[in-house]
Write a protein that binds this DNA or RNA. Sequence first.
DNA 1: CCATGGTTTTTTGTCTATAATCGGCTCATC
DNA 2: GATGAGCCGATTATAGACAAAAAACCATGG
Lengths: 226, 226
Amino acid sequence: MPLARVERNNLSQTVCSRLARAIMAGQFKPGSKISEPSLSEMLGVSRAPIREALIELELRGLVEFDATGRTRVPVLSPLDIDEIHTVRLMIDPVAASLAAERAKASTFNALAANIAATRSVKTLADVSRLDAEFHDTIVRAAGNRRLLLCWNSLRDQVGLWLAQMQMRHQPVTKRTRQETAEAHQTLLDAIRSGDPKKAAAAAHKHVAGWIKVMPKAPADDDKANP
Amino acid sequence: MPLARVERNNLSQTVCSRLARAIMAGQFKPGSKISEPSLSEMLGVSRAPIREALIELELRGLVEFDATGRTRVPVLSPLDIDEIHTVRLMIDPVAASLAAERAKASTFNALAANIAATRSVKTLADVSRLDAEFHDTIVRAAGNRRLLLCWNSLRDQVGLWLAQMQMRHQPVTKRTRQETAEAHQTLLDAIRSGDPKKAAAAAHKHVAGWIKVMPKAPADDDKANP
DNA sequence: CCATGGTTTTTTGTCTATAATCGGCTCATC
DNA sequence: GATGAGCCGATTATAGACAAAAAACCATGG
């Protein structure tokens, strides 16, 4: 049995994941400024780990620095969403294709369990979480660390965008958990078939369909100042 | 005329790019350990900016942290190279396709100038640099920041790999500057045609051809210890 | 020669302090 | 009223200090 990998646990990492969760949970308003001293006090750690965490979050696209070094939560525009979708449309088919070639039984079990969970879950947040997990499992099964890195960043930003939509009280998707489960089942079947082309096509179709049901332009209820 | 963006110039960024160049120039042996105090003394700055730079370099894949926090230059294995090639094979066609739709005259001029420079340049290092620049220009012309981020990381790692090969005194490619220039010209023509599909196909062919002439497995002249 | 245990040195993780910088406010001036 | 200078609080950038942990070293015993 391979020994469990010992992860480096420093405060920076802890702060980083806690902040990532908080941002994606909508606990920081998109566009709001984040100051290091305030985080330092909130989390009870000094500024050094905070700074290191913020740098990582910036590279993951969950915060951004302006020219003077101030940190803020990015406000994703429709253009940003389009960028993210374009890249997802590129990554997901490749991931599915590789997964079709390499996935083991444990992956299929995890995916099937995820679909079952999706059918029984109540809240929309749970569906979103399971959806992210589902695709995460596929990308991991693809066995390409670089691909996974690209995808992680995207997933974070999709999370940020969901938070942003919820904050504006906009419905995120009209797709029910039943439809999601069925779409995932189709994708799982394609991957399990072992045919890379078929899996890629299914993934492409799935992502494209998912994009279609999302609101493209946020209703500008906030001020649209120059 | 759009004003030139004022970039935040802090030591972290400076250290990061200097270290990135140094690593890709082979000034740190792959696998060698890098300690913060030594960098701090070498560059004459305190450890705080060093640490921040290292975090960014880690996400760009130019250094890696072990479980105890020690930093080292990664040793790329044939599997890593395969991962990188897979992702490049995914990104470049999409970038070329988007560039075909969006590129402006200035982009074409830059690409043409690059090709001309490639024909006249002497050293292999120059050809590599121009090759990276060429593809960089295309990805920028694609106008997708997320795509650019993915690609940047890959480019850095290709640079690291070139450094690693040169350190082992292995020829990096058999392709001459003339062949490179011709291949780039073909790709440029495809992009300039404005047909996304044609551009994507050309890019795919180009990358695939490039992969073919690279040495896959490094000759294990070093010790291959367990 | 190899393994083992303890000691020393190095390196990291974190905190705190200080200088430089930015943002906003007041207030005088046109 | 609008505009710009100047001050003040807040924030960032960097440096330096310290403890804890890891690695290297060295001697000792098999």
